[in-house]
């Protein structure tokens, strides 16, 4: 240590505690944002610091590039992650629910961020084992930055304007990179209108995620039937239709592709079969549908019939991603809060 100044690490403790006292954290320690560090983040983008990139007029709040940078510093991002944060935020602002009351919802929805393109490797985004985290700085801190921007920039603070009844496990922690190397299909960003090989982020709000573990069959139709059962769960049906996605593990995706199925084929197969019978829905008090498309308990409802789950056969209603390790047949159904915008945002080079 000869020749170096001795720094007192307790200064860092006090700075971290100061940020807690201001009410600016999500419960975990943050990196205190200095002017110098924030300027390093701003230097990674051509966008002006005062550009407004998000707003909630009813809460009289707006988010600028500068505020996004400050919150990204706090989340523990490296400066070079900032263009990914901005792309994630841009994609999020294309979602119907994020400009309305979605962040305030009792369902406590959580964004799933999906990163595509060479930026995954350049910045160290995990796309393979344990893709839903934790353990990887890029994945963890980009997701967290979005959460801090919502909390601090939009002012949606738990128990005040954030009214989640229970919330969603993994909120502000779900940033996955697609495993493009082991996927048999085009990346999600192509469904979102971005050329393959170009860095992009896609996102939508989730209500939860739940696994499908099937290491039991080599029959692609039986495998998909297992997904259809999980997808069609009645607890998630509150409106006429519901949206859901699948994050396939490489093993499941490759089995389906080897049987000759494209991503569109898989989606069509599921869209045609997912849903519940009127009798099932009557048993749980959700057999009626109002003019506004909200389900309700209808005493004189039809006992016959079948309500399809998906409104349409499209990536907006049923996005499909491939991520995770090629070491077991377990995939994730992700439950959409609304529908995906269907538009991916490019990461500024």
């Amino acid at each position: 240590m000869t020749g170096q100044a001795t720094e007192d690490p307790r200064v860092a403790e006090r700075a971290i505690e100061y940020v807690y006292r201001q009410g600016w954290t999500d419960g975990l320690p943050t990196v205190p944002a200095t002017r110098e560090r924030t300027d390093e983040f701003l230097a990674t983008t051509s966008r002006p610091a005062d550009e407004v990139i998000g707003r909630l007029d009813h809460l009289k709040r707006e988010v600028t590039v500068e505020l996004a940078a400050i919150n990204s510093v706090m989340a523990g991002c490296l400066p070079e992650y900032f263009p990914v944060v901005l792309a994630a935020w841009d994609a999020l602002m294309l979602e119907r629910s994020t400009m309305g009351g979605g962040w305030q919802s009792t369902s406590g929805p959580a964004p799933l961020l999906v990163v595509n393109g060479p930026v995954r490797r350049r910045l160290g985004f995990n796309s393979t084992g344990g893709v839903f985290g934790p353990g990887f700085r890029a994945n963890a801190t980009v997701a967290r930055a979005i959460g801090l921007i919502v909390r601090n920039g939009l002012g949606v603070v738990p128990h005040v304007f954030e009214q989640a009844t229970q919330g969603v496990p993994g909120r502000w922690a779900m940033c996955i990179a697609e495993n493009e190397e082991e996927s048999p299909w085009e990346p999600l960003s192509v469904d979102g209108g971005v050329t393959a090989g170009v860095d992009a982020v896609s996102t939508t709000l989730l209500r939860t995620s739940e696994y499908v573990d099937n290491r039991h069959t080599g029959d692609p139709e039986k495998l998909l039937a297992d997904f259809a059962d999980t997808l069609s769960r009645s607890g998630s049906l509150i409106f006429r239709n519901a949206g859901a996605g699948v994050v396939f593990c490489p093993e499941h995706a490759q089995m389906l592709a080897n049987a000759g199925m494209s991503k569109d084929d898989v989606r069509t197969w599921l869209v045609e079969r997912c849903g519940r019978t009127k009798a099932d829905l009557a048993r749980v008090g959700k057999n009626g549908i109002t003019e506004n498309g909200v389900r309700y308990e209808r005493g004189d409802g039809d006992a016959e019939g079948f309500d399809p789950m998906f409104a349409a056969d499209s990536p907006q209603n049923l996005p499909i991603v491939v991520a995770g390790a090629r070491n077991a047949g377990m995939s994730m159904v992700v439950r959409l809060f609304s529908n995906w915008s269907g538009v991916s945002a490019r990461v500024e080079p």
Partner: peptide
């Protein structure tokens, strides 16, 4: 002591 830590909320410019 920590007045060099930036405010992440933007609230300092909010009209009443």
């Amino acid at each position: 002591m920590f007045d060099r830590i930036l405010d992440p909320t933007g609230l300092s410019v909010r009209p009443a």
